[in-house]
Amino acid sequence: MLEVKGLRKVYRTGTREVEALRDLTFTVENGDLVCLVGPSGCGKTTLLRCVSGLLDPTSGDVRVDGKAVDGPPPGMAVVFQEYGRSLFPWMNVRDNVELPLKQKKVAKARRAELVEQSLDAVGLTGSESAYPWQLSGGMQQRVAIARAVAYEPQTLLMDEPFAAVDAQTRADLEDLVRQLWKRLGVTILFVTHDIDESVYLGQRVVMLSSSPTVVQDELIIDLPEARDQLTTRADPAFIALRTRVYEQIQAAKRNAGQ
């Protein structure tokens, strides 16, 4: 279980202070797929960096299975928005996926197996020897997802992973995430600014206000488990849910404006 309690983060640069997060509290049960949605600049990346132990919060705490996070916890993998910079350009696809496994001291035979399985799962079999910069944006993000999946994490954090890919690729990758989640039983915290995406993907959506950021509302997404880009998005229940989320985010903006 992932618990975020009273999380606050203030960036200090010289004399300037930016309160990126004011007070965030929410939990994600093991095996859940929770989407965090909020406007650009509301501190989503800051939150993920605190959760993944890359950044120390100013106050409040983050716990994974009851253990306080200070530094990147084992069993957690992050997929960054900037896939082009997150992959290592001096390594081919196979080495990129394999390197974290080597660091984790996974035996060689098992590494080869995991690399193959995960590249297969994201539909990249045959691209092992390509370098990241030889691939399209969508394929690069698939490599980053494969790298995270091969790591066999209990928790997967994704920071607006599809914000920079085209709409068609994005739809495919959304379905890929749902499919991997169901198959691997991994806990996913998926951050996005896209309301439709959060409703389409999540079992639950946590809405963030704009800065200074608090949790505005939470919503259970009671759509059928099997989701489909066409029928789900046309479902009146989907439309009602996305309207709810949209209204909350608008309300948050009004409150912030006052």
């Binding site: 993944s52 890359l54 990147p72 084992p74 910079r85 997150s86 974290p100 660091q103 984790k104």
Partner: peptide, 12 residues
Amino acid sequence: VAFETARSFRFS
């Protein structure tokens, strides 16, 4: 980003 990636995968 590359550096944080390495950190997140617990590179020594």
